[in-house]
Simulated assay, not measured.
Amino acid sequence: MIIRIVRMTFLPEKISEFQSIFEKCQHGIKQMPGCLHLELWRDLDNPNVLITHSHWETEEYLNAYRRTEFFGLVWKKTKALFADKPLAFSVEKIV
């Protein structure tokens, strides 16, 4: 299993728009093959920073999702709301 973290800094006036996008698409993401878990977090020190936290069976499943038309449409809408470049990385649990 891998864990995918995507840290996104939004323009303050665009946060509710992103939350609406997330609410509408989260079920579709959770239904993707290999997706085991999905959450949306907010940074306590910077409310303009939202983080997606997802679990995937393998990196291949994550990459397959990232190649879907669905991902492309969601990511295009999301990128337009950013105040800064996102930070994304994958990790695996050791202990």
Rank of each mutant, 00 (worst) to 15 (best):
Met1Trp: 08
Met1Ala: 13
Ile2Thr: 08
Ile2Trp: 10
Ile2Asn: 07
Ile3Glu: 13
Ile5Ser: 13
Arg7Gly: 01
Arg7Asp: 07
Arg7Gln: 15
Met8Asn: 13
Met8Asp: 03
Phe10Gln: 01
Leu11Ser: 04
Leu11Trp: 02
Pro12Met: 11
Pro12Asn: 08
Ile15Thr: 03
Ser16Gly: 00
Ser16Val: 06
Ser16Leu: 11
Glu17Leu: 11
Glu17Ile: 12
Gln19Lys: 15
Gln19Val: 06
Ser20Glu: 14
Ser20Ile: 06
Phe22Lys: 04
Phe22Met: 07
Glu23Val: 06
Lys24Ala: 14
Cys25Gly: 02
Cys25Val: 15
His27Cys: 04
Ile29Pro: 01
Ile29Asp: 05
Gln31Cys: 10
Gln31Trp: 00
Gln31Leu: 10
Met32Phe: 11
Gly34Met: 11
Gly34Thr: 10
Cys35Phe: 08
His37Leu: 12
His37Tyr: 15
His37Arg: 14
Leu38His: 04
Leu38Glu: 02
Glu39Asp: 14
Leu40Ala: 06
Leu40Asn: 01
Trp41His: 12
Trp41Gly: 06
Asp43Phe: 00
Asp43Lys: 05
Leu44Lys: 03
Asp45Trp: 00
Asn46Ala: 02
Asn48Lys: 04
Asn48Glu: 12
Val49Gly: 00
Val49Met: 01
Leu50Met: 12
Ile51Gly: 01
Thr52Ile: 15
His53Val: 12
Ser54Tyr: 06
Ser54Thr: 12
His55Leu: 14
Trp56His: 09
Trp56Gly: 07
Trp56Tyr: 09
Thr58Met: 08
Thr58Val: 13
Glu59Ile: 12
Tyr61Lys: 14
Tyr61Thr: 10
Leu62Cys: 07
Asn63Asp: 10
Asn63Lys: 12
Tyr65Trp: 12
Arg67Met: 11
Thr68Ser: 15
Glu69His: 01
Glu69Lys: 03
Glu69Val: 04
Phe70Trp: 02
Phe70Gln: 10
Phe71Ala: 12
Gly72His: 09
Gly72Phe: 02
Leu73Gly: 14
Leu73Glu: 15
Val74Met: 14
Trp75Gly: 04
Lys79Trp: 03
Ala80Met: 09
Ala80Pro: 03
Ala80Lys: 13
Leu81Ser: 00
Phe82Gln: 01
Asp84Ser: 12
Pro86Trp: 07
Ala88Leu: 07
Ala88Val: 04
Val91Glu: 05
Lys93Ser: 08
Lys93Glu: 12
Ile94Gly: 08
Val95Ala: 13
